[in-house]
């Protein structure tokens, strides 16, 4: 439904940001794109709804080319992006009106808009803040509002461009939970761009970016099995995977594919206590 075909991109300053990247985003999948700062992952995100246009290659959303000016609104309605800085994406002074900003731009009739806004606020658990002033909310709450603003446009794909980078652990966990819920309950396609490896554990597919190209691709299991390669390009493996590998190396326990704290703890207890 969203395909990136041999895309290269060079900034005006002459620095190449993407080099011949090809990627298909499948309907309903939860995709995570990881990479260090400057690996090209944010440039890629801005390609997905035509905020940036490829220097070479094409980005096709539901059969529409992002280079086609006439289809741009249609594309942006389908591909919602939540950005890093929670402050810089809220436009108006009342939460409810901000969530309505997208639908207003799309010319949605008022009665339908009210339903959509209420629904979107409920999906992110912010219905009780509908009349609040955004600047009084926490970072995590602001990001929830930003997500609601996208949901109100009823997009097919939700892109989170390092949306958790400026949040505290609490806010980060919160946003992650909401995104997973939206994916499971509403079947929305999620593209999560992040530098926190832990956030990639819950994804169905992980893409690792490095200096403008795709370095690795696979399930979290497959990608994080290549810890040494990841470290070489400035990334890390989640602490859980690191522990699992250490346990195996030291012959304490082989926990197979366990990836979460719960799985490892359970597996360890079972294997060590022989129950």
């Amino acid at each position: 439904m969203l395909s990136i075909k041999n895309v290269s991109f060079t900034y005006d300053s002459g620095t190449p940001a993407l080099e011949n990247v090809s990627l298909d985003i499948r309907e309903g999948e939860f995709l995570c794109i990881v990479g260090h700062n400057g690996s090209g992952k944010s440039t890629l995100a801005k390609m997905l709804n035509g905020l940036l246009l490829p220097t070479e290659g094409a980005v096709i959303v539901d059969g529409m080319d992002t280079a086609d000016d006439d289809r741009l609104l249609d594309i942006r309605r389908r591909v919602g992006i939540v950005f890093q800085n929670p402050d810089n994406q809220i436009v108006t002074t009342v939460v409810r009106e901000d969530v309505a900003f997208g639908p207003e731009n799309l010319g949605i009739p008022t009665e339908e808009m009210i339903v959509r806004v209420d629904e979107a606020l409920k999906s992110v658990g912010m219905e009780s803040y509908a009349e609040s002033a955004p600047h009084m909310l926490s970072g995590g709450q602001k990001q929830r509002i930003a997500i609601a603003g996208m949901l109100a446009m009823e997009p097919n794909v939700l892109v989170l461009d390092e949306a958790t980078a400026m949040l505290d652990p609490y806010g980060r966990r919160d946003i992650l939970k909401i995104v997973h819920e939206l994916h499971e309950k509403k079947g929305i396609t999620v593209v999560m761009i992040t530098q926190y490896m832990e956030e990639a554990l819950g994804a169905e597919r992980v893409i690792v970016m490095n200096s403008g190209h795709i370095e690795m691709e696979g399930t979290p299991q497959e990608v994080f099995a290549r810890g040494d390669e990841l470290r070489k390009i400035g990334l890390d493996v989640p602490a859980a995977i690191e522990l699992r590998e250490l346990l195996k190396e030291r012959n304490i326990a082989d926990l197979g594919n366990a990836m979460t704290l719960e799985e490892i703890s359970e597996g360890l207890c079972r294997s060590l206590l022989k129950i």
Partner: peptide, 26 residues
């Protein structure tokens, strides 16, 4: 920088001027 980021966010939310805009509050 804020202004730039806000512009991107507004564009992503299909802002294209006042034309064809409806309003939440009538």
């Amino acid at each position: 920088r804020r202004a730039e980021e806000l512009a991107l966010a507004m564009e992503s939310r299909c802002y294209h001027g006042g034309e064809g805009r409806t309003r939440l509050k009538v």
